[in-house]
């Protein structure tokens, strides 16, 4: 369970988040939606310790995350897949995956095989350098790499960015399966609100650093006024 209370964060001279509170549980997908500049990416970067909050608290299970260094997050069960796909292009597919597993100590062959089974496209190219992968394969690789650390909560920043709708549907279906079957918690930051709400259980809408709605996904999708005002569809 990830709980965010009264989080205020500055990004340079700009107040990116002003008193944001919401929570995201395990076994569910919580979509965080909003226009460009609403503070979505800053929110994830603050949760994972890359950015520090001015005030407010972030708790994950019993841990106060706002005091934990970013490099300790994977050991607590939190994995952050950053925006822009973050593959390490110079490493091979398998090295990228192993790196994800190292956060939990040694990487077992079984762990690697389990993740490669989820992404058959990667299994075929495991010894290829990651820079030859397509956009969709890169997104699969970073999600797979995050899963290697056996997280209980996955933070995903714009996984649909620049991908074909078919690939997005494939990735979202996989997330749904992991959430339902293994009780994984997902915080899904998306600008593409329509497809995010189609897979999410709950939606939190940010506008200029404030939470303007926090509802079950179906309710948000049916609220025409809110959709037009903040989600652009």
């Amino acid at each position: 369970m990830l709980q965010i209370r009264d989080l205020t964060v500055d990004y340079g001279p700009v107040r990116a988040l002003a008193g944001v509170s919401f929570s995201a549980g395990g076994g569910a997908i919580t979509a965080v939606l909003g226009a460009n500049g609403a503070g979505k990416t800053t929110l994830l970067r603050t949760v994972s310790g890359l950015h520090r909050a001015e005030s407010g608290t972030i708790t994950f299970d019993e841990h106060r995350l706002d005091r934990v260094a970013a490099e300790r997050m994977p050991a607590l069960g939190l994995a952050h897949v950053p925006e822009g796909r973050g593959v390490i292009a110079e490493l091979t597919v398998e090295e990228n995956l192993r790196l994800g597993g190292l956060a939990r100590g040694r990487v077992s062959r079984g762990e690697l095989d389990r993740v490669l089974e989820l992404f058959p496209a990667l299994a075929d190219r495991r010894s290829a350098t990651a820079h030859v992968l397509s956009g969709g394969e890169r997104q699969m690789l970073v999600i797979g790499r995050a899963l290697m650390s056996r997280p209980t909560m996955l933070l995903l920043d714009e996984p649909s960015l620049g991908l074909a709708p078919r690939v997005v549907a494939q990735i979202f279906a996989l997330l749904r399966r992991l959430v339902t079957d293994e009780g994984l918690g997902v915080v899904l930051v998306e600008q593409n609100a329509r497809s995010a709400l189609s897979v999410a259980d709950r939606g939190v809408v940010l506008d200029l650093g404030r939470v303007v709605a926090d509802e079950p996904a179906a309710v948000l999708a049916d609220d025409d006024q809110l959709r037009h005002a903040y989600l652009g569809f």
Binding site: S48, L50, A70, E71, R72, M73, P74, A75, A79, H80, P82, G86, I88, A89, E90, L91, E95, R98, L99, G100, L102, A103, R145, S149
Partner: peptide, 20 residues
């Protein structure tokens, strides 16, 4: 592997638990 990750993508490496 950790050293290479830290050299190429320090921020991504941190998120993966590498003490850059």
């Amino acid at each position: 592997l950790r050293m290479r990750a830290a050299a190429h993508e320090p921020e991504v490496a941190r998120l993966l638990g590498v003490r850059v």
